[in-house]
Simulated assay, not measured.
Amino acid sequence: MSTSQPNMALMVVPQGHGSLESYIQAVNSIPMLSVEEEQYLARQVANGDIDCAKQLIMAHLRFVVHIARGYSGYGLPQADLIQEGNIGLMKAVKRFDPDVGVRLVSFAVHWIKAEIHEYVLKNWRIVKVATTKAQRKLFFNLRKSKKRLGWFSNEEVNTVADELGVTPKEVMEMEARLSAQDAAFDLGPDSDDDESSYAPALYLEDSGSNHAEVIEAEDWEDQSQRRLTAAMNTLDERARDILKARWLDEEKQTLHELADKYGVSAERIRQLEKNAIKKLKAAMEG
């Protein structure tokens, strides 16, 4: 078990498109943990080992990025969403019990999403009122221009539009937004079915996929690929070449083609292939 010090600077998400892309590339390059490594580190965390907690966090930063992408399109910086998700990941690592029988990524999804939800909740009103630079300018200027309660008359709308250099339609739309009441983010205890369909918490994230299932599938595929590569390296060069030619190459070769290549019978190639597969399976299960 490696005890190398992780690069904790990656836990702070940088601002700016270029730096954010560099951050995402960096966290995606951090190797994922096997089940055994994850359980070992989690048990060390339970004993107060901070370095092991850092390693668990670093190995799962890529999953926070994956989840945060499901909340794009609401006028909130992607870097901020990721940063909030990282806080949720830290809380999950602190509370994770490896003996329950689930992977950390499945357990952490709840905590990551909870922090992102909280962040969006705090910023929900301004997101709904003004999402562009022009709208924000109109929003603040319109608040100063509106001296009384009640709706503008047509004359007042035209006057404000001339003063602010916008169209009357934009003024009326912003006035409607300013007059709107804040919507409840979560369902209330007495909410009925009709009300529940409008709760932002239900449609805020991308519901097209189950984050836990997608992340677990990606984790499983990556682990399987690593184990397959390691298992292939236990075979001799001829066995690796036969398996590669018969199963992995885009243009697969026949037994007779390989028999001609190695100067043996097709039956001998079949036996070598069978033995190689048997060894490969044993290595991957070991």
Score class of each variant (00 low, 15 high):
V157N: 07
N158G: 04
N158M: 04
V160S: 09
V160G: 08
D162W: 07
E163D: 11
L164H: 04
L164Y: 00
G165W: 01
G165K: 02
V166M: 05
T167V: 03
T167L: 01
T167F: 03
P168R: 11
P168I: 01
K169S: 10
K169C: 04
E170T: 06
V171G: 02
V171S: 02
M172A: 12
M172Q: 15
M172L: 06
E173S: 12
M174A: 00
M174V: 01
E175G: 05
A176M: 12
A180L: 04
Q181P: 02
D182Y: 04
D182N: 13
D182R: 12
D182Q: 10
A183Q: 13
A183T: 12
A184H: 12
A184D: 13
A184M: 10
A184E: 14
F185R: 11
F185I: 13
F185G: 11
D186K: 07
D186T: 11
L187E: 14
L187S: 13
G188M: 13
G188Q: 13
P189V: 13
D190A: 08
S191T: 09
D192N: 08
D192G: 04
E195T: 12
S196D: 08
S197R: 14
A199M: 03
A201I: 14
A201Y: 14
L202K: 11
L202I: 10
L202F: 11
L204F: 05
L204W: 04
L204N: 04
E205R: 12
S207E: 10
G208C: 02
S209N: 00
S209E: 02
S209C: 00
N210V: 08
N210P: 04
N210R: 10
H211I: 00
H211T: 01
V214M: 06
V214R: 11
E216Y: 10
E216T: 12
E216W: 06
A217V: 01
A217W: 04
E218S: 05
W220D: 13
E221V: 02
E221A: 07
S224M: 11
Q225L: 12
Q225A: 14
R226T: 15
L228W: 13
T229R: 09
A230H: 09
A230W: 03
A230K: 09
A231Q: 05
M232F: 15
T234F: 00
D236I: 00
R238C: 03
R240C: 10
R240Y: 05
D241E: 07
D241K: 03
K244T: 15
A245I: 01
R246T: 11
R246F: 05
W247N: 14
W247L: 15
W247E: 15
W247A: 08
L248N: 05
D249P: 08
E250I: 04
E251L: 07
E251G: 08
K252D: 07
Q253N: 07
Q253I: 02
L255T: 06
L255S: 07
H256V: 03
H256C: 00
H256E: 07
H256K: 12
E257P: 00
E257C: 01
A259F: 10
A259K: 09
A259D: 02
A259Y: 08
D260N: 14
K261R: 13
K261T: 08
Y262Q: 03
Y262D: 03
S265H: 11
E267S: 15
R268W: 00
R268Y: 00
I269Q: 03
R270H: 03
Q271S: 13
Q271Y: 12
L272T: 10
E273T: 05
K274P: 04
